[in-house]
C-alpha cells in the first residue's frame, strides 16, 4: 500500500512543507513520501508550481509571502524555477483569449451530428483558435516582459538620478523631507478612496481588484491597520513581479476610520498599470527607528 493512503497528506500541509513551516517529524515524513510515493511526488509538484505561480502573480501575502521569500527563494534551483515561472506565467496569461474561456468549440458533440461539413467547420475553428492562441502566447510574452524590463530600467535610472541630485545638497533634501512629513497628502483636489485594503491574514484569499476610473488624476487607497502602534507611517508601492519599489509616500500619521485606524495614500493614476501591486507599510516610532509593519496586495484590472 502506498504510504500516502495510510495517513492523508493535505495540500495545505504540502505548502507548509515547501515553506519550511512543518515540525521536523512531519517534514521527515513528507521528505520520504516525496521520494517513495508516486501520488505525493506528483501532488507536491502541482502544489509547488501553483505556489510559485501565485508568487510571480503577486497573489501571496502575509506570512506565506514572507516565508516564500526567506525560505523558498534561498535555493538557487528554486530561484531558477521562479525565474522560469515569471516568463511562463506572463505568456500563459497573455495567451488567454476571453472568448476561449468557455471553449464552446471543444464541446463534445454527439456522433450522429458528424456530418462532414460540421466536422470541417469545427476543425477550421479549432485550427484558427489554436493559431491565434499560439500567436498571442509568443507576442504576449514578449510584450509583457519587455515592458517590465523597460520599467525596471526606468525606475533604476530615476533612482540613480535622484541619488546624484541629492548628494551635493543634503540640507535641502532633509528640509524637503521635513516638509513632506508635515503634509503627506497634497490637497490639490478632494481625494476619494477608491479601494480599502484590509490587513493580510495567513490565508491565501482573493486579491482585491480595482479598475482605475477614467479621468482620475489621483487614486486614493485606505490601508486599514490592525493596531495603530506607530506615530508615522510610510507606504511603498512595489511591483512584485520585478520586485522593485516604484513609488513611495512621505511619512504621515494614521487617521481614524470607521473600523479603527488607517493610512491613506494618494497615487498618481498614470503610475498604475493592469497588474498586481503590493503596498509595503513601514512604521516609525518616537525613537525614530522604522520597521516593516505589513503588506497589502491588490490588482489593477484593465478598464
Amino acid at each position: 500500500m502506498s504510504p500516502s493512503h495510510e495517513i492523508a497528506v493535505h495540500d495545505q500541509q504540502l505548502v507548509r512543507y515547501l515553506l519550511g513551516q512543518l515540525p521536523p517529524d512531519d517534514a521527515d515524513r513528507i521528505d520520504e513520501l516525496s521520494v517513495v510515493d508516486d501520488d505525493i511526488a506528483a501532488r507536491l509538484r502541482v502544489v509547488e508550481d501553483d505556489l510559485v505561480d501565485a508568487y510571480v502573480r503577486g497573489a501571496l501575502s502575509g506570512d506565506t509571502l514572507k516565508r516564500f521569500e526567506s525560505h523558498y527563494l534561498s535555493s538557487p534551483l528554486r530561484r531558477e524555477r521562479v525565474a522560469f515561472a515569471r516568463s511562463f506565467v506572463s505568456a500563459v496569461d497573455r495567451a488567454q483569449p476571453p472568448a476561449a474561456r468557455t471553449a464552446p468549440m471543444r464541446a463534445v458533440r454527439p456522433r450522429w451530428i458528424s456530418a462532414l461539413s460540421v466536422a470541417a467547420a469545427v476543425l477550421l475553428a479549432a485550427c484558427a483558435g489554436l493559431l491565434l492562441q499560439s500567436i498571442r502566447l509568443g507576442r504576449g510574452l514578449k510584450d509583457a516582459e519587455r515592458a517590465r524590463i523597460a520599467l525596471d530600467q526606468r525606475t533604476r535610472d530615476l533612482e540613480r538620478q535622484i541619488a546624484e541630485l541629492r548628494a551635493p545638497n543634503q540640507t535641502v533634501a532633509s528640509e524637503r523631507e521635513h516638509a513632506r512629513e508635515s503634509s503627506p497628502a497634497p490637497p490639490q483636489e478632494p481625494l476619494r478612496i477608491a479601494l480599502v485594503l484590509l490587513p493580510q491574514t495567513r490565508a491565501i484569499g482573493p486579491v482585491p481588484t480595482l479598475r482605475v476610473p477614467p479621468g482620475a488624476a489621483r487614486i486614493g487607497f485606505e490601508l486599514r491597520l490592525e493596531s495603530n502602534d506607530y506615530s508615522r507611517y510610510q507606504v511603498g508601492l512595489r511591483d512584485p513581479a520585478a520586485n522593485t519599489t516604484v513609488w513611495r509616500s512621505g511619512w504621515a500619521a494614521a487617521r481614524s476610520s470607521g473600523a479603527g485606524s488607517a493610512v491613506v495614500v494618494a497615487l498618481p493614476s498614470e503610475l498604475l498599470k493592469p497588474q498586481h501591486y503590493t503596498f509595503d507599510l513601514a512604521g516609525r516610532g518616537p525613537d525614530g527607528g522604522a520597521e516593516v509593519v505589513g503588506s497589502y496586495t491588490f490588482e489593477i484590472v484593465p478598464r
Partner: peptide, 13 residues
C-alpha cells in the same frame, strides 16, 4: 498545438 492549448488552460489564473 494541443500541448500549448493544454498548458494555457491548465495554468491560467
Amino acid at each position: 498545438p494541443e500541448q500549448r492549448e493544454l498548458i494555457v488552460e491548465y495554468y491560467a489564473e
